[in-house]
Design a protein around this nucleic acid. Sequence first.
DNA 1: TCTGGGGTCCTAGGACCC
DNA 2: TCTGGGGTCCTAGGACCC
Length: 425
Amino acid sequence: MYAIVDCNSFYCACERVFKPHLAEKPVVVLSNNDGCIISRSDEAKALGVGMAGPYFLAKPLIEKHDVEVFSSNYNLYGNMSWRVMEVLRIIAGKNNVEVYSVDEAFVNLNGFGCNQVREVGERFKNTIEQWTGVNVSIGIAPTKTLAKLANGISKMNKIKTGCIAVLENEEKIMKALKITPVKDLWGVGGQSAKKLLNLNILTAWDLRQMPEEWARKNLGGVVGVRLIKELRGEKAIVMNEFKDKKMIATTRMFGDAVTSLSDIKEAVSTYTSRAAEKLRRQYSAASTINVFVVTNEKGEEGAHFKHGPTYSRHKILSSPTAVTNELIKPAMQLAEQLYQEGKKYKKAGVILSGIVPDNSIQADLFEERKSIGRFLMEQIDNINFSMRDDSVKYVASGLKRDWKMRQELRSPRYTTRWDELREVK
DNA sequence: TCTGGGGTCCTAGGACCC
DNA sequence: TCTGGGGTCCTAGGACCC
């Protein structure tokens, strides 16, 4: 059996842990640049605040009901996430926990008997809530897809289920499949949902009746086959052991549109530094760097919302590297090639790929390698980690940073900065 | 008029996820 | 006026090889 453990309104929950007076109040958290709403407390949902909607559209509703609003505080959420996952690892053993996202993890429960799994789920839930202050919902079933489905059911009526749903036998599975619309299945997005609806396949139960060959032809090939197997209780999606990322990206909207090449270069340089840090954290090096910019031009007529075209260029490096300045140099060239005078830019980003372990770098025969890079990087990473963000940075990244994103409502980083600790009088 | 067969690797783009 | 960021996997099609 698998469990999926999912934190309820995770970002809002993190804010509330340190501001107990918000416990019963509606709370929302905004995306970077204060653009969209990405987390809502139950109270905010009840008021009709939509998910992933633009903040400016929801603002009247938010002000009318005195909803508490926060900019996202990823230092805080990342650290709280680690604490939650650590509880699971302590209880279930670290090899049985697969962190799926910042607020979700799958746990392999094979070590427990069928009649024990609910009890284990309760132990997860109670311990996490007691140790971190974050509430979770749990779904338990024979496959990951069914566990996700169970989790959905546990959330439909939190009081009745106690936020835990277990599908331990065929009868319960059948019942659950019949009340779940296909569009709510894990792995069915907008496109597939539309297709299925046209074929009058409405519930998860309907979909489970379809032959695998049909899925191979009409539902995304092997992806569809896997989904149907999972619904039948056949494990088709297994535990992923920890894997290095195959792609590392740092991309941001600008606070305000940017027009000058120097601002673009500063931003791209900053994102490159950040991406290189992520690269070094997993002891990897990258061999391809891709830089892109998005302009302010009018998007397609009638599009859901307008964003301008993306211009991108990449460069394949002569040998993989994780040294920031070796990445900034090509990044700057790419930025210069992309830049067009007179355009307004609203976003830029850097994507590193062609990722290999940094201990097996195939050296370039024709290039002299500077071994100082690695040592220097370690020192810079250490200083930036222990002091504050970017105590040490490359001049190319700029000092003023006029292009920086908006983040007007961020709470203190209570758990990762000494000078921002919660004070208790 | 008529131009093989079998394979690998890479990239771009689609779909999906949180 | 104002709409996020960071990933994964898969497929199709092109380039290339013998």
